[in-house]
């Protein structure tokens, strides 16, 4: 589903991703952990080319998005993304937030888009909030709307960029619950997070990143239970 080969990313002289090669299978849930500044968010943002790729290849369903000729908008329809700060559109109601992209990008009719949006809101437990504006929602509710908004495009992969990092502790659970449900339904997911409990419980594989490399990857029970590298051990001893 996703194949990354020798991906490198620099901001000016600063090389953030040094050489990343990894594959992610369909229906796999891959959790990316690592200290801040390790490049994990940048890695995620290269998967839908929100960051221009300096060198290497990123294949999404066989299409290399590092190729400037590829229609990136078409590929992004299949790659949903959820952001740390939600990035809901404040001038649109919850329902309109979810309906916008299907109507404008996929040219779905208003009726179909609305029905779909309501179904997704029900799924994330916010059907009663359809007509309010994002500013009146709590952080956890905002993030659940953001997930519904991404799902409305019927993506094949979902990218989560620290989806619970900006939330008050009591709201983390409701967002993780939605993500867990999504994983159980077979969604392919790449999740950058500091929630080790989620990684352990939901992840099929955990990548530990540090200094622009994937230092270690393994099944969660093995990576957490028996880390091989010194840096992994040092990191886990601090966060667990």
């Amino acid at each position: 589903m996703i194949r990354v080969e020798n991906l490198k990313k620099s901001f000016g002289d600063h090389e953030v991703l040094k050489d990343i090669t990894v594959s992610i299978a369909e229906k796999e849930v891959v959790v990316v952990i690592g200290p801040s500044g390790s490049g994990k968010s940048t890695f995620l943002r290269c998967l839908n080319r929100l960051e221009e790729i300096t060198s290497g290849h990123v294949y999404i369903n066989g299409m290399d998005i590092a190729d400037p000729k590829v229609n990136i908008n078409k590929i992004r329809e299949d790659v949903g993304m959820v952001f740390q700060l939600f990035n809901l559109f404040p001038h649109k109601s919850v329902l309109e937030n979810i309906m916008l992209a299907p109507m404008k990008v996929k040219k779905v009719s208003k009726e179909v888009a609305e029905e779909k949006a309501l179904r997704l809101l029900e799924k994330v437990g916010l059907k009663d909030k359809a007509n309010v504006y994002p500013e009146s929602l709590s952080g956890g509710q905002k993030q659940r709307v953001a997930i519904a908004r991404a799902l409305a495009m019927e993506p094949k992969v979902m990218l989560f960029d620290e989806p619970t990092s900006a939330l008050d502790p009591e709201m983390v659970g409701e967002v993780l619950e939605v993500m867990k449900e999504l994983a159980q339904e077979g969604m392919t997911m790449v999740v950058v997070t500091h929630e080790m409990g989620f990684a352990r419980e939901v992840g099929d594989r955990v990548l530990f990143m540090d200094g622009g490399y994937i230092v270690e990857e393994n099944k969660p029970e093995l990576l957490f239970g028996n880390p091989q590298h010194e840096r992994t051990k040092a990191f886990l001893s601090k966060v667990l």
Binding site: N48, L85, F89, A150
Partner: peptide, 27 residues
């Protein structure tokens, strides 16, 4: 405007022009 607004719109598959028209310019 926060850069995240453009990024969210683009991540949903909107073109730059669509994002400007529906998300950025109204705000």
């Amino acid at each position: 405007l926060d850069r995240g607004q453009m990024e969210a719109a683009r991540s949903l598959g909107m073109t730059h022009v669509q994002a400007m028209q529906h998300v950025i310019i109204p705000q």
